[in-house]
Design a protein around this nucleic acid. Structure first.
Lengths: 144, 144
DNA sequence: CTCATTGCAAAGGATTTGCACTAAT
DNA sequence: ATTAGTGCAAATCCTTTGCAATGAG
């Protein structure tokens, strides 16, 4: 029984016939143990700090597998590049993004989720996932 | 008094000291009279069909001004490229995007909007705009 | 006539890919 | 030993930019 998300990912790799490589393990660890919404550059920097070598191609390829596993989700937050975040079970949340300082806050609202399900139903639409991003100014930036 | 969105845009150009060029007028007309969520490629194709010449650079630059004017909004819908849509007043809506056929449906839900305002308030967050994209399978694709 | 806008082609940033080498099983 | 994964550099996609030529006012 996997103890944490990295173990769950390793089990996923085994089950699906992927090789369990040093790079995949390390990149997964970073995503699963770092708080926040990491860009590929962030991941590269953390790898560098930890003196772990993994090419940018491997980062992207590992992220693909992580997303396939369902353990990671990606965001765009209005920028050109993607950001990645561990998708903890039953912890789905949405985001408030500050246009000024870039801060990202999370929130959870079950009523909104329920209403989405209702909307989908009305359109005979089967939801796989959704993204609700609210842009504006955080308390700090709004008052200054 | 502007009669339609293209006129409103032209008024915006004048008021803000931009030149009113043939390209800007034509590109605006396309966005404001075409139903759907246009990519830059779509716009290029329509221009070509109508035998109007406008470089891709001008398309991008005009879209920037259209967005500044507030008359057009952009989306990403999980793809690499942007899509553009007229932002008709009081007609804000969100989207259901079919992962299979790419179809985009619109919906409007005032309760969701209100709940978002409430969430923002709780976080002392000032909303400028938001995007709610629901991904999944449309009725056609779900049943096949 | 003047200066913003255009068009072109070149540059840019993020991501993907081909291929020879390396390493997990 | 076998084959998937890695790393590199080149390619790709979408978008932006520099600059000489053009056209709106």
């Amino acid at each position: 029984m996997p103890e944490d998300l990295t173990d769950t990912f390793i089990k996923f790799l085994r089950d699906e016939g992927y090789l369990v490589t040093r790079q995949r393990r390390r990149i997964a660890e970073i995503i699963f143990t770092t708080v926040g919404h990491l860009s590929v550059e962030d991941i590269q920097n953390i790898l560098r700090q930890r003196k772990i070598s993994a090419s940018i191609a491997s980062i992207y390829r590992t992220l693909d597998v992580l997303i396939k596993s369902g353990l990671v989700v990606q965001h765009r937050f209005g920028k050109r590049f993607k950001r990645f975040e561990a998708a903890r079970q039953d912890q789905h949340h949405d985001h408030l993004i500050c246009n000024n300082c870039g801060k990202v806050m999370e929130f959870k609202n079950d009523t909104i989720e329920e209403l989405q399900r209702q909307v989908a139903k009305e359109h005979s639409f089967v939801i796989t996932n959704h993204k609700l991003d609210i842009y504006g100014h955080c308390s700090k930036c709004a008052t200054n």
